[in-house]
Nucleic acid binder design. Structure first.
Lengths: 209, 209
DNA sequence: TAGATTGTTAATCGATTAACAATC
DNA sequence: TAGATTGTTAATCGATTAACAATC
């Protein structure tokens, strides 16, 4: 399928294309040209055509792109045509926010379990999902074939638990802890560092002109 | 202060430098060379020196960088030596997670108010902060000199409320809604699109080699 | 067919890395 | 002073934009 390596910046832009195409689909737009999409998204038409052509010719000369087709194709490239078993480790506010966010399930990310270290949370349910203790993790991951784990724990807990997840077969970690996890290169790590995002905002706020 | 324009990629890397320097400081490390830091952070020493030199010569030949000094300087560049008044609009799980995250306050981001549209939340308190209704926003923003607003609302709500915030003097929006806000260029927008992050993870999970 | 718009090559721009003279 | 390591210039690499022939 992949003839050549796709650059990271292109991959980072795909979800945004997917979002805009989803919006267009909802608005019942059937076709769109790179020029129109470029105005909508505030990027150059050239970049859109270059980006999409990394994955094959999705458009048609003189016509543009079929919205539904392009949406589905990008969905497949992103792996959204598949279903994933996911757990959330850390059942605090952030973990519960993720657990309650139904849209993830719609995209094929099924939340199978919620874990925490605090004994007082044992047995509490969030959206019908019972909170379990982290010592049950190895068994649970294997039994339910968990591929993805969201880590919504403090740094120290995340660093201890991440290797356990990896050892038991978790293939990707969505890391909200303020640390860079050191894991085997076979494990995908996607970081969401909220403090760093807020600092970035702060920089921009102080360097307007 | 600014002699030349700093590139966006450099700015994006600053918070990560800041985090590593904070960790080193905690570990009582006094000085560090670009070579040592590069190994720790998994970037080239050359990039570190180039990045830092955008803002001035923070190091010393033959010695390296003083950790405490560099930490403070990057903090100042990021605007963390100042104090900001912040509100959170959207008091769901995500909004409450942000409200409960004490570390933001430590960095100078003071959470002054929590807002929602749901009448049943009126008067409920989170960490001592009472939830108010969004129609009180204009008055509240002006009275408390709010500079930053976190938007943890669904897309439709965010699109309605963002312009109101801007009109009343909010200077920066931390946007968690799944949409790109269209605001005057004087307003800084920092997006945190969690679904897009999860899709990026999904892509990487499906394209390992 | 004529017009529109893609796919793709070539030109430009920017970011990263390498190298080394300056200097603590 | 000698050794270490920065600050900075130059070389390389990669990403974006422009241009246009191919083609629907």
């Amino acid at each position: 399928m992949d003839e050549h390596e796709i650059s990271k910046v292109v991959v980072k832009r795909l979800p945004r294309y997917y979002r805009y195409l989803g919006d267009l689909l909802e608005a019942k737009v059937e076709r769109i040209s790179s020029g129109e999409l470029s105005e909508l998204m505030n990027v150059t038409a050239s970049q859109i055509r270059q980006d999409l052509n990394n994955f094959g010719g999705f458009g048609q000369q003189g016509y543009g792109y079929n919205v539904k087709y392009l949406y589905d194709e990008i969905g497949k490239i992103l792996g959204l045509d598949k279903v994933y078993n996911m757990i959330i480790v850390g059942a605090g506010n952030l973990g519960q926010a993720l657990a309650n966010y139904v849209k993830f399930e719609k995209n094929g990310f099924l939340i199978k379990g919620l874990f925490d270290v605090k004994p007082e949370l044992k047995g509490v349910s969030v959206r019908g999902i019972e909170i379990r203790m982290t010592d049950e993790l190895p068994q649970f991951i294997r039994k339910h074939d968990i591929q993805i784990a969201a880590l919504t724990l403090p740094k120290s807990g995340a660093e201890v638990i991440a290797p356990v997840l990896a050892e038991n077969g978790v293939k990707a970690i969505w890391n909200f802890a303020h640390t860079d996890l050191h894991l085997p290169p076979t494990v995908v790590v996607e970081n969401v560092h909220l403090s760093e995002s807020l600092m970035h905002l702060s920089y921009n706020l102080n360097h307007m002109d």
